[in-house]
Design a protein around this nucleic acid. Sequence first.
RNA 1: GCUCGGGUGGCGAAAUUGGUAGACGCGAGGGACUUAAAAUCCCUUGGGAUAAGAUCCCAUGCGGGUUCGAUCCCCGCCCCGAGCACCA
Length: 820
Amino acid sequence: MDNSATRDDPFSPSVVAYDPQAIERKWQRIWQERGTNNTDLQRAQRPFYTLMMFPYPSAEGLHVGNLFAFTGNDIYGRFQRLMGHNVFEPLGYDAFGIHSENYALKVGQHPMDLIPRNIANFRRQLERAGLMVDWRYTLSTTEPNYYKWTQWLFLQLLKQGLAYKKQAAVNWCPSCKTVLANEQVVGGHCERCGTPVEQRLLEQWFFRISDYAPRLLENLDYIDWSETTKTAQRNWIGRSEGAEISFATKDVKGGECEIPVFTTRPDTIYGATYMVLAPEHPLVEQLTKPKEKKKVGAYREQTKKQDIITRKTSTEKTGVFTGSYAINPATEQQIPIWVSDYVLMEYGTGAIMGVPGHDQRDFEFASKFELPIVRVVCGEREDANTPLSAAFTECESGTLVNSGVFDGFRVEAAKKAILEFLARNDSAKPIVHYRLHDWCISRQRYWGPPIPIIYCESCGTVAVPEKDLPVVLPFVEDFKPDDSGVSPLARHEEWYRVACPKCGKTGRRETDVSDTFLDSAWYFLRYPSVGHDDVPFEKTVTKKWLPVNSYIGGNEHAVLHLLYSRFITMVLHDAGMLDFEEPFTRFRAHGHIIRDGAKMSKTHGNIVNPDEYIERWGADAFRSYLMFLGPYEQGGDFRDQSISGTRRFLDRLFASVQSMSTEGKPDPSVMRKLHQTIRKVGEDVPRLSYNTAVAAMMEYMNVLRKGERTPHRDEIVPLITLVSPFAPHIAEELWEQTGGTGSVFDAAWPRLDPSLAAEDSIELVVQVNGKVRSKIIVARDIAEEAAVVAALADPTVAKFVSGAPKKIIFVPGRLLNIVA
RNA sequence: GCUCGGGUGGCGAAAUUGGUAGACGCGAGGGACUUAAAAUCCCUUGGGAUAAGAUCCCAUGCGGGUUCGAUCCCCGCCCCGAGCACCA
């Protein structure tokens, strides 16, 4: 749109048209000069901390997805400020990690050069978007005075016994000879060269998040979070109640041996016709009979080679027999012990009882290797004697068969009874398992905070003393991962060769860096304490500002980032450093925007560059459009054409203020609509119904201008405040023009007068047999009898009613239904 | 396969979750202003019957059900999106 014609029109010099570029520049300058967006953290009376997910500063610049997220947060924050809170709205950069590193590799530049440039560009774009960010408290995870405390955090976990080292598999590309992150593995193949990915075992650092599984799960019941996010976390934590049952066996040397298995279906024990161990199970070695050694050994080698993803997704069952047998504690029969990769070492005990009749995976395995399939549960409409063609997994309708004394028990009762029966000789106990496994924080990479550990020949693993932090990530020219399987830092002896802090002998630094998710697991604690260089988070300021009051972000972080943040907060709470254990009081997941029906991507060529749109339409119109295009929590479809709608709305708002009258009195019916709008917007914004809030304001604008009337000052001034969270620049300008003092954001939200908002007559819907036949205007508080009389007086209603009505349904103030 | 979203005009979407289906916006059509165009302003805009703005019928992915009344609740399907994925 080009409004230069109107602006320069010599025939209407008195009319000043809305010029977003000029207004936005002006107010961004004023905000900066006056410190409008700054929050006095010490003196704040009603602190309110709004948090948005900090972006990864990519070289491409700000994505509309970022802006969609930030604008939604900003509106919420600005609204809270208008409601009288001292709002703190910080923003920083999540600049470490594989993303940045890969991009740097691709363009052949160093991340240490690249990142500051990207951050500067982001900062410029973010300021143009008109966010109420207090930039004095910004941070980047790549700054040594930030990651110093990330390393400190690692040391705290180490101290608590929550950090430990173990062997774990990583993705390995044999062609590129490098460790791959999960996102670099596409369908089991290396993203870059297409070679099938293998597993490699490396010593890595882990955090015991699984110790916190019960608490991470239980607290979900009381925190005010989007249900979708809570559900995702519940599934990820994956609590299952079941039993651990021991199967007795003899090892190759004839010694007694017990193999515990985990099952959620102890009721099906009579149908356990074989047993399976994970290939990595420690007992495989001693259970494999000499003549099976070769086969089993080869199978274990083969599964080790397979990459993690194809192993987990292949449907064809494979496996080998060990030659040994175990005793089913219920039937006391011998059952063969197999090894198969469909059993995972990470879950349960790494061993299962095979119940092919009632588990589809076991059914497939048993069918393939011709193991006996016994039915022990029967559905209501089933014949217990017909052979199974698939596993019968229904629980509710099942009754036990072929299960000795338990025949006839219902599944739920049988679970309990069989468990009690087995517990008598200690071969079973009830147990709860979680699928959440420990958090691997080691990365064999360059672009991250070095893990603060020194390995000493005589002292072993030694923590870097806190006074020596940060362990600064050195600038190295060759940061590309290589075939060594360890971090590029391991090529720099001058860096890793250090004296042991304990004994002074030669030591070697840990050369792995930590996971980016560790950087982001505590950044919200840091913001209010930026500037306190001697502590990670300062005591009084933390007490005042945390936990975070409002956090709005994408659900793609529902499990990783949000769960890790909760875990870290709990750990710090337990260490006595925080007095709360949940970091985010309220969390809302926003949706995602697509464009012209497709996800935005380079290949589709439908990426929106915010700069161009802000240039063309103004930040205010662009922000408002992003909020208007669909329900915020669901996202929506971005269409270029539609932006003109929100822009026109702002044009009209601007024009109406220029031409408003200050004489006479406001129209009572317009004032009624105004108060209805104040109510509607005030209700919609807190629940993130931004699209309907904008619609309500547009509707009011239509009322204001209906029949080319000139709006009165009192009718329009409150609308400026309603619009301000969405379109802050134009609101400030109009606030100033209408004689407001200071910033509109330091004024108050318009006071709602419910009596002014109330209608005295209403449109009552009249139905006959549930079909709308008429609408009659009646007093708001009309009684049922009077309403029936009025309705029957209406000829179209009367037409459908013959004789006395059978029934009357009356919804006061709304609807009357006559059942004839 | 499992879990969570979602399916409503030409399009993005509303409907205070059992009470007027389609608010608001885009687009489209018509008109005013203009030499003209753009911009702006006004009117129309789910489909059908009808001389009609009166009135009636049909319509919220499909098929049933509950109810005076269903976009909303229940049962059985189909499609789209996102995430998880051999978790015993």
